[in-house]
């Protein structure tokens, strides 16, 4: 996309973001992050480092305690969210941001197609919200089918989601986020339940889909080798701070080892799982 190359200011910008849980523990501490439209990056770091929290703040699901986040669209429109931003205002913004949850968050009783289609609820009218649940339109069905085909899941189109294996459900969750066609694709451990070959294929697909639309793609991965192989840029997170943010080729193995040993950035409190909704 031209706008992406024009570069400056387009995309996601976090400035000095901190985030405290309700119990007062600090999950993010002065984080700054730039993610231009069309760029790709992986978040790595030990568990409890704040990766999930960072992604949630990027997704405008959680509002920063201090500092601000800014999303600039190609047409120049700007969304800013900071401490105290009303959650309801963020709705239009969120429909631009696809998110793959670590624990999928699918509706187990619905069929796969319904879960995939639900990714586009943000742009459906009241009427089509109800109609597409009962009987999805032909175009949406074909679109969902072809997306699932690329995830090798097309045979499950009309299966109930809770009959699927963990890995299959994870791919449904990916499909839902891709189906949303957002300008920013965030993924929290999107391939944790997949075997290595499939994990690579799914990440490739997510990159392609994001690139096709000029969307930025940010994923957290616990598998550092995978991140190094597939992502051009690595962002190391530890103790709620950014430890490094560099092209992958410039990240040394020693740096990575230090990141996971917790050198320098000591306190990681594991509040990630304990905290907010």
């Amino acid at each position: 996309m031209i706008a992406a190359e024009a570069g400056v200011g387009l995309g996601l910008r976090l400035r000095n973001v901190t985030f405290d849980y309700a119990d007062g523990s600090r999950a993010l501490d002065g984080v700054g992050l730039d993610l231009e439209s069309g760029s790709v990056a992986a978040l790595v770091g030990p568990s409890g480092a704040g990766k999930t929290t960072l992604l949630r703040v990027c997704a405008a699901s959680w509002m920063p305690t201090s500092g601000s986040a800014r999303w600039t669209e190609a047409d120049g429109r700007e969304h800013v969210w900071a401490s105290g931003s009303p959650a309801s205002k963020a709705r239009a913004l969120r429909s631009q941001i696809g998110f793959v949850f670590q624990n999928f968050r699918l509706v187990p009783q619905l069929r796969v197609i319904q879960n995939v289609l639900s990714g586009r609820l943000g742009s459906m009218s009241l009427f089509s919200t109800i109609r597409n649940l009962m009987m999805p339109s032909r175009e949406l069905t074909v679109e969902a089918f072809e997306l699932l085909e690329r995830l090798e899941l097309e045979e499950k189109l009309y299966q109930r989601t809770d009959r699927l294996s963990g890995g299959q459900q994870q791919r449904v969750a990916v499909a839902r986020a891709l189906f949303q066609r957002g300008r920013l694709l965030l993924a929290d451990e999107p391939v944790a339940s997949l075997d290595p070959a499939r994990a690579e294929a799914v990440l490739h697909l997510m990159r392609e889909e994001a690139a096709d639309r000029g969307a930025a793609f940010l994923a957290s991965l616990h598998d550092v080798e995978l991140a190094r192989r597939l992502f051009p840029r690595l962002i190391g997170v530890a103790g709620g701070r950014i430890a490094f943010d560099r092209p992958t080729s410039e990240v040394t193995s020693a740096e990575l080892r230090a990141l996971f040993r917790g050198d320098g950035v000591a306190e990681s409190d594991g509040a990630e799982e304990a905290g907010l909704p």
Partner: peptide, 15 residues
């Protein structure tokens, strides 16, 4: 998750 995708109240209730 649906709220994160920008779904409104009706979408969240029905889906």
């Amino acid at each position: 998750a649906l709220a994160g995708a920008g779904a409104g109240p009706l979408g969240q209730v029905c889906w």
